[in-house]
Amino acid sequence: MFTQKKPATTLRKLHSLHALPDGRAFTGKIEIGKARYQFTFTPQEASAPNGKLTLRGSVKVKPPTGSARTVNQVTASLLATQGSIVSAPPVPKSLPAALQLEQPTRSLPATDATDEQSSVGVLYFKLSPLDGRALGVPLDLSAVQLNARLYATAEVERDFQWLVSALVLAKTEAQLTGYLAEINRSLKA
């Protein structure tokens, strides 16, 4: 695979970026030495080409000094997820009855946070190539992976986690379309 030494590039590549929900957005920070850049991805629209969640929205970066810069039409394509190990969030209050999930009955013990008790803990997205210079970040941002950890502390964040979890577990096309519509509704609310 990478048996050759990598050629020296002027800019270090940012491989991944950790972000947490903040209402309908995801926020994180990029650290370069002691400098901290605040990063915000605000999705405005969700789609699911080939069943894979894709969010489209804007990226805003606020440098340690000076004003924030924003880039629009950024896509975040879901690469994979990591299952949560704690109990799933409650079912969104506004969820249409047709999208409610059935709870199977069991005669044997269940496994923590698994099957019907499961939820998604982290969404790993690939962001469309970003121009570090345009955002004022001295790093190569051409292939950034956004690690969105769904640590939900507000209702809107819990609803998003529930819907995304249902979406990745969807077994039918109708479920997929239904959950996607709900995600879009919540992004636009």
Binding site: T81, Q82, G83, A113, D115, Y124, S165, L169
Partner: peptide, 16 residues
């Protein structure tokens, strides 16, 4: 720190 060391799982089947 999990933020630097990801791994992925099959939906519905978490692993710690």
């Amino acid at each position: 720190s999990d933020t630097e060391h990801p791994y992925t799982t099959e939906p519905g089947k978490p692993f710690l």
